[in-house]
Each structure stands twice: as C-alpha cells, then as structure tokens.
Design a binder for these strands. Structure first.
Lengths: 212, 212
DNA sequence: CTCCCGCTTGATGTATCCAATCCTATTTGT
DNA sequence: ACAAATAGGATTGGATACATCAAGCGGGAG
C-alpha cells in the first residue's frame, strides 16, 4: 500500500533536515515505529535511514535501545572547530593559487549580502556560504567533502547561537580582510587569519560555557 | 534459526575487513542474497550493513542496481593524501606539546619493529602504527576519528602497493628524523617534514600512474 | 540490421511473526 | 521496611514470505 513515497534515501534526508534545523532536539529518542507512522512507511526503511545517520554521526545508536539524536557537548564543538581549522586552512591554502577573478567576485557578492543580512540566522547561513566560496577553488573534492561533513555536525541552532554570540561586526571585518588577502595571493597570512577567526569562535564558546 | 550469529554491526565489520584486505575487489557487485547466504542471515541485516558502508564511502550505491565496492582512482588517492596532510599536520602540531616520554618511547618501539619488518605488508602496517602513535597525544578525539576514517579508505592492497613503491629505507629515515623533531618539540619542522613525507607518496603515485 | 517488447534478475518495500533485551513496577524475602 | 528478584510491557533485531519496480537481455517484427 502506499505511503508518501518515502524511500530510504528520502527518509534519511528528511531526518537530517529535522535534526539540522532543530525540529528533533539532541537526545531525543527516535522510535522506529513512530517514525514509520509519521512518514507512512514500514520500519525497515526507517531502520536503514537510521543506520545511515548513525554512520554519519548525527545519531547515537545503542544495541536494543535504539537511536537518539546525537548530543553534541561544548567539548565536541571545540573539537569540531579544531577539525575545521585543520581542513579549512589546508583547503584555503590550496584554493588561493587557483582562485580566479570570478571566484573572488562571487565571495565579494556574498559579503555584500552579508552586510545587509538582518538576523543571526541569516548571518550563520551567509557565513558558511562565504567560507565555502573561499574553499571551492581548491579543486580537491574529498577535502571539500570532509569539510562539508564536519560542518553538517553543527546544527542550525548551534550555528545561529554561535553567530549571535560573535555578533556581526568583528567576523565581518575579518571576512573582508580575509578576502583581501586571498585576492592578493597572500596564502600564509590568509591561513593565519582564518585560523585566528576560528579560534575566536572557540574562545567565545569556552567563555559562555564557563559563564552558563 | 541458526546463522552464525552475525548481527548488522558484525556484518559491517566483516565486509569492511573483506574490502580493506582485498578479498572483495573494487567494483565487485555486492549481492544482498549472496551475502545473506554467505553470512547465514536474512537480507535485512545485509542491507543495513551496506547502508552503513555506503555512508562510510566504502561502497557505491545506485538506486535499484545495488551496491558495489567503491572504486578508488589514482586521483582520489591523491586527494585522500591531501586530506591526510590537512588532518595529520594539525594533529601532529597539537600532539607535540602533549607528547610525554612514554609516547615517544612507544613510537620508538614501533620504529624498532619496523626496522626488523621483512615485507611490504608489514611495512605498511608498521607505518600506520607509527604515524598513529605520533598523533595520539593530540587529545582531540574527533580529529583522530577523522584521520582514521580517511585512512580506512586506503585498502590494505593500496597501502602495500604504496609501501612497496616507496621502499623501506627513505620512509624509515624520515620517520626517525620525524620522531627526533617531535622529541625536541620542534613543531614547525616536524609538520614540514610530515608534509613532505606525504607529498613524496603523492609524487611516487603520480609517477607510476603515468608509467603504467 | 535496428528497434521495440517482454521476460528475468535483483533491489526495494510491506506485512507478519518471533526472539532477545531493556525498563519499570510489582512482588517477594529477609 | 527495604533491597533483591521477577514478571510484564515496550522496543529493537531479525526471519520469512510476498508484492512491486527498475534495469538489462534476448528474441522477434519491421
């Protein structure tokens, strides 16, 4: 009989979105039966989707106890930012010699949108689009994949929280400087700035983690 | 009924090993029925295991056509080595200030075994154990996880081929120098050497790729 | 010879059952 | 009265059987 045409892949996509956008909160149990009912399928595609998400690290699985949305502690966020530094510094270094005028222009256009963006949610989205635009010319698909995979472990909520925490001015100033350095081909300086840029985020999280 | 007690997780582990150790060659089709028969289970755990491996990138999946062992081209090996540089340079830099005498001693012990290792297969294994020992003190689990995940995409066969290609002497010389630099806390030099060490591998693969 | 149809193969999904396990709450023993 | 044992319900994990669907092939018809 029919359902909503949800297949395993579509199910995984839907769950990923639910997690990323905070409709499913960290720690929430993911009951197979309930999800099957909600998506109009049997339990089997649900289980397969959950396995996929588990392998991606978005879901914690314990045998005979089922899946829960992965909880990401502040420590883990720090570690994910450390991975960001590792991957994105290198991608940036590879990208700079390849960056064409069109690439720079694209990044500049995103910064312009950024300047006009009103809310922390939009800052977070713009922020990522800008960074991504910088890495794109690196021409190393697996590196970009790794960056994206790491990025997906930050929920939209977490990103928005971080953006709100950092405000808009200082990151945006750094973005402009970063783009300038990239445009001049100053790889070492750009990488150093990017590293500091991410370390700033680490510091502000550490600070709020202590405060509450 | 019976079965060999294979559960989804065990099945994924077994398949991972079969792929890593070359019993399942790249491009080989993974038929659900056949695997179910071989492992004495039904198709359901097989499918879940395949989904897991797909998410890990060890298996290619096309809708309605099933799974095949992922094909890793020379280009992709180059890219995976690029990811190695990104992740492992950073892990090494973080590890060096944390490296205790016991860590150095452990790495040195592995190098001693390495010196005695006879065959390319054992070189490859030792090589990894040595590198891993260097990164371990970085105290950043997610970084180590990312390194391991990337590493698992090299099959044992590929690693052995690479080891045979590079021989034993030059890598081993570099390993000794690397350990020496780590022991003295010379982070910048160690990272530079590690990068060159991996770039050497890239070059020798590029060379054989051209030759045949 | 080429194109199209239909058959076969294998993947995907459903429904139903059963076993194992975990959680909870109740009962039991001291 | 309180801790330990246990019984029951809920949930996952897996087996089996069946239905459906897409892709590849093989054999004719044009």
């Amino acid at each position: 009989m029919e359902g909503s045409g949800f297949t395993t892949g579509a199910l995984a996509t839907a769950l990923r979105a639910d997690i990323a956008e905070g409709r499913l909160l960290p720690g929430a149990p993911l009951r197979q039966e309930e999800l099957a009912l909600r998506f109009g399928t049997s339990r089997i595609p649900v289980r397969e989707a959950l396995r996929t998400l588990q392998a991606e690290g978005l879901v914690d699985y314990s045998p005979n106890r089922g899946a829960t949305v992965a909880i990401v502690t502040d420590t883990e966020i720090q570690e994910m930012l450390e991975v960001r530094i590792a991957l994105e510094s290198h991608a940036l270094r590879l990208a700079i010699p390849n960056a064409a005028d069109a690439d720079i222009a694209a990044a500049r256009a995103i910064l312009a949108e950024y300047d006009a963006a009103p809310s922390p949610e939009s800052w977070a989205a713009m922020n990522w689009r800008f960074h991504w635009a910088l890495y794109l010319p690196c021409e190393c698909r697996r590196l970009l994949d790794a960056i994206e995979r790491n990025f997906k472990h930050f929920s939209t909520a977490a990103r928005t929280k971080i953006s709100a925490l950092a405000g808009k001015d200082r990151p945006q100033r750094e973005h402009h400087r970063l783009l300038d350095l990239v445009g001049r081909g100053r790889a070492d300086d750009a990488v150093a700035l990017l590293t500091e840029h991410i370390r700033d985020t680490q510091r502000s999280i550490r600070a709020t983690g202590r405060a509450g």
